[in-house]
């Protein structure tokens, strides 16, 4: 696996219309990944909120395409790491190799030194290898042989896991799932989208033609912009009410942590920003809430409902103050 340390050129031209270009970028991704508007928005939202994304789905529904397209439109370099049970941490982080001519070790960065990473089937690797990736995601840096290497910025990981394939997998523990800001499943396309997919040209060609609309610098600036989105007291009331409700034991084993609450706020801001608003509404919170909570919460045993259904019901129970 090759690797490149990217220091993408800052693109100062036209910094003002970056929001418009962000919207264009989203539209471009929507063009490639047909009929998945909501998931695409959530992916962008995750990127803008400096989070990482977990996609739970079967193969072949467009996970790779989404990751690739996203990397392309934001002008970032992109690495795909296929996790297998024999993958080692060094395969992700990189290794130091002795150079005889220089009489020293030279660090060869692994694929983690990329701005957009697709970690495919992350649950098939051993916990040790998983944690190598997850630590990088949490810290924004990796330490190898007493040397700290800062990861590029923006740094966006999309991990996938196959929910059905349980043989020979190591499911991610709750504590590590918490590192992902949002999760969703792409699901099958609806009939119209599927027909379009079948009749029009190969998506790979469309992807190839797509040019970058943003620079990594833009992305960082947009991430900063997101944090300026206004959050009113009334909205905080609602967020607290939601968090409190998840902690009621009739729903879930354990409720959402304060860190999850912060994540909810960040994601809501990003969604409001994507929607070109300078304030967050309860709808923003509701839209991101499912993606935020579904991998963090496990329903109280004895419920036949899936987490998604549970969360929808919970949202229906909390009045908007």
């Amino acid at each position: 696996m090759n690797s490149t340390v990217i220091s993408a050129p800052e693109n100062p031209e036209n910094p003002e219309n970056r929001h418009e270009r962000l919207i264009e970028a989203r539209a471009a991704v929507n063009d490639i990944l047909l009929g998945k508007d909501q998931q695409v928005s959530l992916a962008f939202c995750c990127l803008l909120a400096r989070g990482h994304l977990l996609i739970e789905d079967v193969p072949g529904v467009g996970k790779t395409t989404l990751a690739h397209a996203l990397a392309r439109v934001i002008g970032s370099d992109y690495q795909r790491i296929q996790f297998t049970s024999d993958l080692l941490p060094a395969d992700i982080l990189g290794v130091s190799i002795y150079k005889r001519e220089k009489d020293e070790f030279e660090f060869h960065p692994g694929p983690i030194f990329s701005q957009v990473i697709l970690a495919d089937e992350v649950n098939r690797a051993t916990p040790k290898t998983q944690s190598a990736l997850l630590e990088g995601m949490a810290e924004g840096q990796v330490t190898i042989e007493n040397e700290t290497h800062v990861l590029p910025s923006p740094f966006f990981v999309m991990a996938t896991q196959n929910p059905l394939d349980l043989v020979g997998t190591y499911p991610l523990p709750d504590s590590q799932l918490d590192r992902f800001l949002l999760s969703f499943s792409l699901g099958y396309p609806d009939p119209t989208a599927e027909r379009e997919l079948l009749t029009t040209e190969d998506r790979a060609h469309v992807l190839d033609r797509t040019t970058s609309l943003l620079t990594p610098g833009d992305v960082k600036a947009l991430q900063d912009d997101c944090e300026k989105v206004h959050v009113s007291e009334n909205l905080l009331d609602y967020i607290q009410a939601l968090l409190q409700e998840t902690r009621d034991e009739r729903w879930f084993e354990t409720g959402l942590s304060p860190r999850a609450g912060l994540a909810l706020l960040r994601a809501s801001r990003a969604l409001a920003f994507l929607d070109d608003r300078d304030f967050v509404t309860p709808e923003d919170v509701k839209t991101v809430f499912n993606g935020l909570a579904r991998h963090r919460l496990s329903p109280t045993s004895g419920f036949s409902q899936s987490p998604d259904e549970q969360i929808q019901e919970l949202l229906g129970q909390v009045p908007i103050p």
Binding site: T281, P282, E283, L315, G316, Q317, V318, I320
Partner: peptide, 9 residues
């Protein structure tokens, strides 16, 4: 209206 609906919903 349902109390849990946001204004836009």
């Amino acid at each position: 209206a349902r109390p849990s609906d946001g204004a836009m919903e």
